[in-house]
Computed example of a mutant assay.
Amino acid sequence: MKEWQGVSEFVAVAELGSFSAAARQLGMSVAQVSRNVRELEQRLQVLLLQRTTRQVHLTEPGTLYLQQCRPLLHGLAQANQQLLDLQGQPSGLIKLTAPVFYGETVIAPLLHDFLKKYPRLQLELDLTNAQLDLVKGGFDCAIRLGQLSDSGLQARKLGSRRAYLVASPAYLAEQGVPVQLSDLSQHRCLVGSVEYWRFEQQGQKLQIRPTPYIKCNSGVALTDAVLKGLGVTQLPDYYLLPHLQQGTLVELLPELQPKDDGIWALYPLNQHLPQKVRLLLDYLQQQLA
């Protein structure tokens, strides 16, 4: 099968844009990846990649070759995975990404419990609030929260989250309790990365854009600020539920609470979902329902 040697390395370099990134993904040394691609070019007697000191670019023949090789490698991976699935006990690596706080507090503990059930699996979890490219990054799936954009990915709903408008008892004792949306203009608003607060009244969706007293892209920081009586904020339930249950925060305008958002697993379209990933998504859906 000499014709296959270097093909996986070439596709990885072409998709990731560097030899070092391809080496990390393939678990090889940079020198070995470079050598295998060079030998592939020598066998084909054509230059596939234009190398500079900082970047790697596809040549015109390289672009054509990539278009043909990518589905072949995908089909080979599917065939291998289907054979592994027949063996019953799932094994191998699951690579996924999730938002930082939700990943740390909810997803990671569930993944650890899942690994205890299936000890032949390995996990690579990338916690980031950035929207990573699943194909380029080699991810099996991504956990995303809230309303989805049209990303061209397959989506599976795992659960729901609820947004609460809250303040501390001390803040409300000092500043008063808002009884309608217009009252919020008279309050100190603690605003996150989403500039609009959402509400719903008799089936009609409403939005307001509060003037920030504090603006911060960290839900953890905003939770600390609202607990210390600095203002009013709207955050998802996983930041607030313990504090609402303990009475250290108070829900405001509950009659205007918006409908729940989704918690989603995203994965590439038209991709055979390996048994190990299907089992994981079934488990997460059961736990997050």
Score class of each variant (00 low, 15 high):
Arg161Asp: 00
Val106Ile: 15
Gly103Ser: 13
Arg38Met: 10
Pro169Val: 03
Gly219Thr: 09
Tyr267Thr: 01
Thr128Lys: 02
Leu280Ile: 10
Pro236Trp: 10
Thr63Val: 08
Gly27Lys: 10
Ala170Arg: 13
Gly231Ser: 05
Arg120Tyr: 03
Ile143Arg: 08
Gly262Met: 03
Phe139Ala: 13
Gly231Ala: 02
Asp282Ala: 14
Gln154Phe: 11
Val250Cys: 06
Leu222Glu: 06
Tyr239Met: 12
Leu181Pro: 14
Leu132Ile: 13
Ser91Thr: 08
Gln234Val: 03
Leu158Ile: 06
Asp183Arg: 03
Leu240Ala: 00
Phe19Val: 11
Leu72Ile: 14
Gly92Trp: 09
Leu125Glu: 12
Arg38Pro: 00
Ala170Thr: 14
Val232Pro: 00
Phe19His: 01
Ser91Val: 00
Tyr213Val: 03
Thr59Ala: 00
His57Leu: 11
Ile214Cys: 05
Ala21Lys: 15
Ala173Gln: 14
Leu64Phe: 12
Lys157Ala: 04
Ser168Thr: 01
Leu86Asn: 11
Gly103Ile: 15
Ala31Val: 14
Arg43Met: 09
Gln50Phe: 07
Ser218Tyr: 05
Thr63Ile: 09
Thr105Val: 15
Gln204Asp: 10
Gln285Met: 05
Leu148Glu: 06
Gln82Cys: 03
Pro71Asn: 06
Gln122His: 12
Leu47Met: 13
Leu280Met: 15
Gln50Asn: 08
Glu255Gln: 15
Leu227Glu: 02
Gln257Asp: 01
Trp197Ile: 12
Ala22Val: 02
Arg43Glu: 08
Leu206Gly: 09
Arg278Phe: 00
Val7Gly: 01
Gln5Asp: 05
Ala31Ser: 14
Leu184Pro: 13
Leu123Phe: 08
Gly146Ser: 06
Pro212Cys: 06
Pro169Met: 07
Asn270Thr: 09
Gln175Tyr: 13
Leu172Lys: 04
Lys136Ile: 07
Pro236Met: 05
Gly62Asp: 00
Gly62Asn: 06
His112Glu: 09
Thr97Asn: 10
Ala173Phe: 02
Gln245Met: 11
Asn270Tyr: 11
Lys136Glu: 05
Gly231Val: 03
Trp4Gln: 07
Glu15Ala: 04
Tyr196Thr: 14
Ala142Gly: 09
Arg209Thr: 09
Pro99Ser: 03
Leu47His: 11
Gly137Lys: 01
Thr53Ile: 01
Tyr171Ser: 02
Ala23Tyr: 04
Tyr65Leu: 08
Ala289Asn: 12
Ser151Lys: 04
Gln285Lys: 15
Leu66Pro: 00
Gly103Ala: 15
Asp85Ser: 13
Val11Arg: 12
Leu280Asn: 12
Thr248Asp: 03
Thr248Phe: 00
Gln122Glu: 12
Leu252His: 07
Ala21Met: 04
Ser218Asp: 14
Arg51Met: 05
Ala163Val: 10
Val13Lys: 13
Leu73Tyr: 09
Gly146Phe: 12
Ile94Thr: 03
Asp140Trp: 10
Arg162Ala: 14
Gln82Val: 04
Leu64Ser: 10
Pro90His: 03
Leu127Ser: 09
Ile263Met: 02
Asp261Trp: 12
Tyr164Cys: 10
Ala167His: 03
Trp264Thr: 06
Pro90Asn: 07
Pro169Thr: 10
Ser151Cys: 06
Ala22Asp: 02
Ala265Trp: 14
Asp113Ile: 11
Ala167Ser: 08
Glu124Arg: 12
Gly176Leu: 11
Pro242Ile: 02
Val191Pro: 05
Pro254Asp: 01
Ala142Met: 10
Ala265Asp: 02
Leu288Lys: 01
